[in-house]
Design a protein around this nucleic acid. Sequence first.
DNA 1: ATGATATTGATAATCAATATCAAGTAGGGG
DNA 2: CCCCTACTTGATATTGATTATCAATATCAT
Lengths: 147, 147
Amino acid sequence: MDYKEEIKVFSSFLKRRGLKHTDQREEILKAFLSEEKHLTADDLYLLVMKKNPAIGHATVYRTLKLLCGANLASEIYLKDNRVCYEHKYGHRAHEHMVCVHCGKTIELRIPEIESLVKKVEKEHGFKLNDYALKLSGICAKCGKDTK
Amino acid sequence: MDYKEEIKVFSSFLKRRGLKHTDQREEILKAFLSEEKHLTADDLYLLVMKKNPAIGHATVYRTLKLLCGANLASEIYLKDNRVCYEHKYGHRAHEHMVCVHCGKTIELRIPEIESLVKKVEKEHGFKLNDYALKLSGICAKCGKDTK
DNA sequence: ATGATATTGATAATCAATATCAAGTAGGGG
DNA sequence: CCCCTACTTGATATTGATTATCAATATCAT
Ligand SMILES: [Mn+2]
Ligand SMILES: [Mn+2]
Ligand SMILES: [Zn+2]
Ligand SMILES: [Zn+2]
């Protein structure tokens, strides 16, 4: 767990943009990478706090934006459309299915989506950055409970 | 443009839930139906104001939630993930493509999505309410401008 | 018409996310 | 290694959208 690869990616991103590599930024990146799941900015803030209580709220928000810029993280919108972040570096595109009752989130892999999306992109002259497919409903467990 | 159908749907929804049919609610529904596009709660508030300046901000928010409950409206999330509302009654499911630069939104119809989604639903024992596919990128016009 | 109950609109409160800004730091050039 | 300057930081205030509160009012089954 040294995250050497990701740190290098982040460093070169920062340099390319004339930004500085600070201890806070690296600590936040490491904390982010240490949890293989969907985190809100505040979740990450709490995580970072445990290691270094001096790091400010705003810095976590700012750094998450940078991580997205460096393609190390991506924003996603799950339950109640709260902004969450997930790992992007070395992770394939995927879709999400969210239980509107308990919030449980399942990651899907529907490869057919990609080509459908590509086709549409061409048809409309769009230059596509990204796409997101979110299914919402009631998970098996909640369906049983409320029956 | 008397919206008779929709008003009846709304009325029976309200009755079924033990809620009351008020002038404000009907006015807000009519204003909502009068614009065939994606509106924020505040967009709708401004629209309603023109007809009846006495109607409060909060009532518009509250009524939009009811319209969603009655399947007359649905929430969507476009640029910057602002909450918008669109007509649902008598409208087929569709997908959206949004330009991250200018906000231009195109409605798509990708019928293949439906069956893909249904398949996944079964596989995971979910009871699906809804799904949303959003493509984001740079539209043809913005692509030309920034070239 | 009556009365229980839902609704309204002004207002305050909340919440996540940003902006501000003085003090501190990184890091390239010398 | 030191300087200088532009970038960063963290505390704090601010924003902007949405929701909660609550006294006054309207609805509707009876
Ligand atoms: Mn995911
Ligand atoms: Mn639409
Ligand atoms: Zn569930
Ligand atoms: Zn555009």
